[in-house]
Each structure stands twice: as C-alpha cells, then as structure tokens.
Write a protein that binds this DNA or RNA. Structure first.
Lengths: 226, 226
DNA sequence: GGCGCCGTTCAGAATCTGTTCAGATTGGCT
DNA sequence: AGCCAATCTGAACAGATTCTGAACGGCGCC
C-alpha cells in the first residue's frame, strides 16, 4: 500500500484528498502545517508527498528545502494557488517533481501522483511477483498461475506488504505499522489471524507454504518455489 | 517509437527539449513557426505535439484550431509563458490536452507528455469493447452480441466510464467526478443505484457478472469473458 | 392537463469484513 | 519428557458497506 503524506492547512481540501486517496488504496497521513509536515516526512518513509506552498509556520518551499537537505527524496507534488504570488519555478528548482494549480480536479491529482510515483520509483514494479503468485496493486487483483484469488482489502494489504519484502523477514509490528496504523491499539494477534487466512487462500497443497513463520521474529514470504 | 512534434521558435528551448526527448527514446521533429508546424502536423502522424503559444506567423492557438478543424487529433501539450497574456483556458477549450507554464523543468515536461499520451490513447478509441459488450459513444449505442441494449443517458455514461477503464478498479468518487461533476453534492449512493441498474441490463444469466464489486474500493468491469 | 420517462433520494435488507477472544497446537529448551 | 512461550485457528460479533425497491419531482411530449 503506497503511503502518502498530505501537507495542507485547508481542512476541506485535506480531508477531500485524504478520502479520495484512501479510496484509491493509499495510506494517508495529514499534516496541517509546515513544521508538522517536515517532522513527519523525516520520521517516516513516504512514497509521495503532496505539499501545499502556502502553509502556516513554515512555507512549502521551506519544508521542501529542509527535507531535501535532510536527505529525504520522496517525490513531491506541490500545490499552488493560481494567483502567481509564489513561483512554481522556484519549487521545481528546489527539487519538486511536479506541481498542480488550485483549484484542481481530484482525477488530475491522482493521475499526476501515479505518474510521479511511477517515474520516481523505478524499483517498484507494476506487478508484484513471488513464485507463481502475482499481485497487481492497480487492478487490485491477485492471481496464482491462472486462477484469480479473491482477497479482502486487509488481506490484500498484508500480502502486498509481504510480497514487497519477499524473502525478508518482516516483524508483526512492522506489518501493523504499515498495513494498519503506526499507532494501532488493538490486539496484535490480528496479524496472525490475517496471515492464517492468507495461507488458506494462497497456499498450494503439496508445496512448501509460501508464508513461513520465523519464530520470535515475524514472517517471511518466499520469493520462489511458491 | 513514439513520434513527437515540437513547435517552438526559441531555439534554446527547442534544442534542449529535442535532445531530452531523443534521450528518452522519442523521435522528434521541430518546427520553428506556426505555419511550418501546422503543415507538418497535417502531413504526418504524431503521437504527441508540444506547441508553444507565442509563435511567429501563426499563433499556437491558430495552429491548434486549424489542426483540429483538419481532423487531426494528436494530443497537444501547450507551452505558455507565465505572464498571463495568453489564457490557458482558451487553449484547453480549443482542444489542447494539457499545458505547461514556462519556465518548466524537463522532468515535468516528460511526465506530462507521457501521462498525456497514455490518457489519450485510452480515451479516444471509437468503440469500446469488453467481452461481448460493445459501446459506441458516437452513436450512443450499446450492443451485446447482436442485441441492442437500451440505456438512458446516465446509464450510458457510467457504463462508458467503466468500459474505458475495464479491468481496473474505479472508485465511486472517480465515477462521480467524471459522470456527474467533480463537486457533485448529492448522495454518492447514486453510483450504486446505477451500477445496479446496469447490471440488470447488461448482465447475462449463467455468466460471471460483468461489473464486479470490489468492496471498500469501487467497481471493476471485466474486459473478457463478460 | 395527462402521461411516461428519467434522475435522484431514502431507508431497510442483505451481505461482507475487521476484530476479538479463548482454547488448541507447536516449537524450543532443560 | 515436561514446561513455557509463541503461534494458530475457529467461532462469534459488531459495524460498515453495498444492494434494492419504492417513491418523488421534473421535464418533455402528446
């Protein structure tokens, strides 16, 4: 699940964008001022940042400059008001990857975000593969061999995370933080439950199970041999 | 190899863009005035046109207008200077597909060009097909196999959108934004209602239903086996 | 004015999902 | 073998999401 930070002080825009992005399968954090935005972006790993220029406390320019200085290179899409008070060129010079003028349509935002992430993150393939398992985040579809496997939203998210880090061991807390929320406060056993459900759905009989339990540490999804 | 025409009289920009595009694997033609640009675009088939607005002999507006009149529908990305002498809205009204304000970064130009070509390729087919379903936007006609299916305007629009993005999951908000209005303020349940009606009209008994619900995300229309 | 079609709203029904929990099972260790 | 902690699993529930039929009002046409 791609993770996006939205730094925007106008609550209306922020929530609208948030809702839309979530519907599109993103995980979304919101910061309503520059300082908070800068803090979040340096503390977490985002796949993209939507950054308003006009912000309280710290302008979008400054946030961008300081995050680049701090060696954070997540792709940034700047939001600018259409009155040319702030110059877009400056933002691009500072290392923004794209920009959008308010008011914008949500569809355009999505297209730009996707294009930007595709462009910037070449290491992320459109389709995740592991053995004969195939997972297509855009189509929200999971296939083993030729048969489609139906997954719920959560199952999909957990599997996606495991596949993204296939052959590596990922801990429960890591999964919780990424698939649920950094401060999820429920029973961590939920991860076990979902891994169990996934196994029943994606494992093939007579084959080694795809998701291995690494006792005391977490889980590992095997990249080859199913 | 995608072929691009760049109509731009400032030699510096033209050659920079040309070099960059070639490096990205495009074939590039340059015209340094409007008349030449118009001639080339009508004589050749380009996958995209980058068109400056301020040009000697014939403005970018005029080039665009006349090429559309001549039934040339290659996607056009307009270049505008940031002083608002020329209005971007006019260009979009005339049928430009995107625009960029000078000065722009090359990265942004590439992203826009790619996104534009992708978008246009998807949006311009004459007849939409998915399985044995056929939808002709020009004739406002929908056919399954040999029988015509009568659809109301809204039903048609929703189905058209789903078919345009067949096999992908489209969210309710996306459908609302495109078929209704980006700031439609009614009950989003209207989408569910129309999908339900469409199902009753276009689904065949004993077959997998064409429009699948992807819970928590949206709907997906199956492109094959429909 | 009457009629039919269409777009929309609404509320209840039907369905699906996320989560919790407790008991069963497994694996590692002495 | 026996113990403890970690893990698995099935059942159950609440809540969210989606579906659907009914109803309403506007609009164009006869």
């Amino acid at each position: 699940m791609p993770r996006v930070l939205v730094v925007e002080d106008e609550a209306g825009i922020a929530t609208a964008v948030r809702r839309g992005l979530i519907a599109e399968g993103f995980t979304v954090d919101i910061a309503d001022n520059g300082v908070d935005g800068l803090w979040r972006v340096t503390e977490n790993e985002y796949d993209a940042v939507v950054l308003d220029i006009m912000l309280p406390q710290l302008s979008g320019y400054e946030v961008l400059r300081q995050m680049r200085a701090a060696n954070v290179w997540a792709p940034v899409l700047m939001l600018t008001a259409k009155d040319g008070e702030y110059d877009v060129a400056d933002a691009l010079d500072l290392g923004a990857d794209d920009y959008l003028t308010k008011p914008f349509s949500f569809v355009v935002l999505m297209a730009r975000l996707r294009a930007m992430m595709r462009r910037v993150q070449r290491e992320r393939p459109a389709v995740l593969m592991a053995g004969d398992l195939e997972l297509d985040p855009a189509r929200r579809q999971c296939v083993r061999g030729t048969v489609e496997i139906k997954l719920t939203a959560r199952e999909f998210a957990v599997l996606e995370y495991l596949m993204r880090y296939h052959d590596e061991v990922v801990s429960r807390s890591e999964i919780l933080a990424h698939v649920w929320d950094e401060n999820f406060e429920g029973d961590p056993n939920i991860v076990d439950v979902y891994v169990g459900r996934l196994r029943r759905k994606v494992d093939t009989p007579f084959k080694r199970q795809a998701i291995e339990t690494v006792r005391g540490v977490g889980y590992r999804l095997h990249g080859t041999g199913g």
